[in-house]
Design a protein around this nucleic acid. Structure first.
Lengths: 218, 218
DNA sequence: ACCTATTTTTAGACTTATCTAAATTTATTT
DNA sequence: AAATAAATTTAGATAAGTCTAAAAATAGGT
């Protein structure tokens, strides 16, 4: 159907559209894909011919309905495989991304469906991101960043914005994981750091940390 | 490490070396890979530069130690994934080949090991072929073709030579599966067909069938 | 509205894996 | 041993995806 490279572009466009709530510029896409703008232009033309994106010269791209659907299916596979790796094969949540980047391109509708069933139709991947169902629907939870919480407010940790190994290992080291309740005890206006209560422990975290943790409030 | 295409060539050379107990000719490889002899020559040169094969112009190829090891690792992954698809995801044994052809190229040592562990270190794939262990060792069972059995002899069905969907579905339809005992009741010299006894049922099968079923005798 | 800076596109080149057609080497037959 | 057939390799071309460098279009500042 589509090549690995095409699927990766679609995925990148999908994420950038969400992030900026707008069409995606050639340069932004080049940065996301870690490639050059000229390569992006070439690929965009190809995707446009295949009607996966809507493209007008110098005006950036956005996904067509087909492109959107395709991107979501790739993301669905990525997140299902991540869940599989963590839940069934004993991987840590910071080790799964690169392998899922490969597995997401395996072509078999039946494989995806059966894997989903085998895993019990999970709703979220190990990083708290929603897993689209077979029809491409997924919940956009009413989550917010921990840094947005005020003093004495609390919520449940439901996801990470940055899912780099470094950040995830930091969380592991400090025993912060999805599902745990976090309460803000103090907030330092000067540097944005905060003192939080998690599992009876008090912990001081920098703004960089609270800016990358998603919280759901009751 | 190596490209999909390189890995597929190594696998093909591996199988042809086994099949003919000899070095592999360019044409034989072209047929196996469903490509042209000139393409094979090009690829062989590349594999030779990478020291995966031993090649002298006009003399065919054979795998180097590294090539052999690499081919076995690809085959290990292929067969582990086939086992996974059948045992965990409810695939039928005739549906797994094409998906395993994709999955066998996923690069992650840890993934392979954990998958192997998760599956309980299976020794054989759904078609009865041995699964190499992490060190690349696998048993070469003392199996023979059903067609080699004489009248009144019997054995356990342990594998298939042809693993095409058509053949496997034929076996399913006739309730022939691995592990079952088969006894030769009659053998027709004229066309090589035989009457067999399997699970109290009598069944007449052509030589094409008995030539593609592996049997282990006690 | 013009000039400059930035962004985007085009043009031409490279790599991988493939192809066709022609040339060369090896094998076979008489 | 020469002639022919078969197998193999070479040469040149193509497509996908990338690159660099140059050209073109858009956006911003005064």
């Amino acid at each position: 159907m589509f090549s690995f490279s095409e699927e990766n572009y679609l995925k990148a466009i999908f994420h950038l559209e969400r992030k900026y709530q707008a069409g995606v510029s050639t340069n932004a896409l080049a940065e996301e894909m870690e490639t050059k703008a000229s390569s992006v232009t070439d690929m965009i033309k190809k995707l446009s011919e295949k009607e996966l994106v809507i493209y007008k010269k110098y005006q950036g791209v956005k996904l067509s309905e087909l492109g959107d659907k395709t991107a979501i299916q790739v993301i669905r596979k990525h997140r299902l495989w991540e869940y599989f790796l963590v839940e069934k094969l004993n991987f840590n949540w910071d080790e799964v991304h690169d392998i899922a980047e490969q597995l997401e391109h395996i072509k078999s509708e039946k494989l995806t469906q059966e894997l989903d069933k085998f895993l019990g139709f999970p709703k979220r991947d190990p990083h708290g991101d929603p897993i689209p169902d077979a029809e491409g629907n997924f919940s956009v939870a009413n989550k917010m960043l921990l840094s947005e919480l005020g003093k004495a407010e609390k919520g449940i940790c439901v996801g990470v914005k940055d899912s780099s190994s470094e950040f995830l290992r930091f969380l592991d080291k400090n025993n912060i994981s999805l599902g745990k309740e976090i309460k803000v005890l103090e907030k330092e206006a000067f540097d944005g750091s905060m003192l939080i209560l998690i599992e009876e422990r008090e912990l001081r975290i920098s703004q960089l940390i609270s800016n990358n943790l998603y919280i759901k409030i009751q």
